[in-house]
Design a protein around this nucleic acid. Sequence first.
DNA 1: TTGACAAACTAATTAGATTAGTTTATAAAT
DNA 2: ATTTATAAACTAATCTAATTAGTTTGTCAA
Lengths: 184, 184
Amino acid sequence: MARDLTKEKVVATAAELANKLGDIQQLKLKDLAARLKIKVPSLYNHVKGLDGLVHALRVHALRILEEELRNVMAGKTGRDALMSAADSYRAFAHQNPGIYPLIIQAKGIDAETEKVSRDILTLFLLILGSFGLEGDEALHTVRGLRSLLHGFVSLELAGGFALGLELTDSFERLLSTFIDGIEP
Amino acid sequence: MARDLTKEKVVATAAELANKLGDIQQLKLKDLAARLKIKVPSLYNHVKGLDGLVHALRVHALRILEEELRNVMAGKTGRDALMSAADSYRAFAHQNPGIYPLIIQAKGIDAETEKVSRDILTLFLLILGSFGLEGDEALHTVRGLRSLLHGFVSLELAGGFALGLELTDSFERLLSTFIDGIEP
DNA sequence: TTGACAAACTAATTAGATTAGTTTATAAAT
DNA sequence: ATTTATAAACTAATCTAATTAGTTTGTCAA
C-alpha cells in the first residue's frame, strides 16, 4: 500500500483543519482521516493516536512561530525589533487560532518541544539585550513580555474583549507602555 | 427519591473536582456522579449535560472572582487598589486552576455570564478611574490590564515559565511597570 | 390515602478513540 | 522474473464517555 503520505502531511493537514475549526478540541480523527482519504486506524501508522498528534502539532506550531519571529527580527534592534516581534506573534495567533493555544501548554514536555521553546525564548532575550537588559532583569522582563503577548492574543481569540474599540490600537498602546517601562 | 441534592451542590462539587484535577478536560461525569453518590444519568436532573455543567461552572467561577475582587478593593484606590486586585486575581487562579480558564471563554454567552463579566469589568474600570482614566483611554487600559493578568497566570498555571526565578517577583515587576506607565 | 412530581434508576444508543489482526502494494534481493 | 520483507493500508472488535429513553420510587400536598 505504501502511499506517499508522510507524518508531515498528516500534521500539516491536521493543523489546517484545526485552524479552520478555530479550536483543537473540535478536531476529530474521523475528519482528519477523511480529509486524507484514509480510514481512522491508518492514522496510527503516522502518529501515536490523538495525544501523539497534539504533541506533533505543538512542535509544528512552535517551529512556525520561531521561524517567523527570526525572519521578522533580522537586522532590527530595540523598539523596532520588539514591535515587529510582537506584531508577528499576534499575526501568528490570528493565522493559527486552532493550534496557537498549544504553544503554552509546556507541562509534560519532550526534548524537541523544549528545544524550540528555548529557541523562541532566546530570540526574545536577544531583543531585550538590545535594550541593555541582562541576567535576572532580562528574565523577569521576558516573563512580562510573554504574559502580555499571550494574554492579549488569547483574550482576543476567545472573543473576550468587548467590541467598539480597535483591537490593534489597544495592542500597540499596551506595547508602548511596556517598552516605555523597560527603556533606560 | 427527592434527595437534598441541589444544582448548587452539583456545581460546587464539580468545581472542587476540576480544581483538584487542575484541568477541566479531565473532569468526567462518571467521577462527578460517583462523588455525589448517584449514577451518571441522574446528573441530567440538575444540569443540561456536560455543556450545561461547564456553563454553570463558568458563572460559578466568575461570581467567586467578582466577589473576591470586590472585597479586596473595598476602600482602596490607585496603586493600592490595583495591586490588591491583581494579587487577588492571581490568587483566584491559583486556588481554582481547573475552572480558571473558563472565565475567558466568553464566545457563546448567555445573559447571566455576560452580566457577571460586565460587573468584573466595571470593578477594573473603577480602579482605573481612580488613576484619572476615563472613556476610550480607560477601555484600552483595561484591555492591557486584563491581558497581562490573564497572560501571566495562565502561563504560570501551564508551567510555561522556566524555574529558577521567583514568580511573585516577576508578577510584581510587571505590574509596577504597567502602573508606572498609566500614572499621570 | 391517593395522586402528582421530582429525582433517582436501568438499559440502550451514539460518538469517538484505540487495539488486534489481516491484506496489499512497493521495492529490494535472488 | 520471482520471491520476500515491510510499511501502510484495511476491517472488525473493544473501550470509554456522554447522552437519551423509559421506568421506578420517595415525598409532599390535596
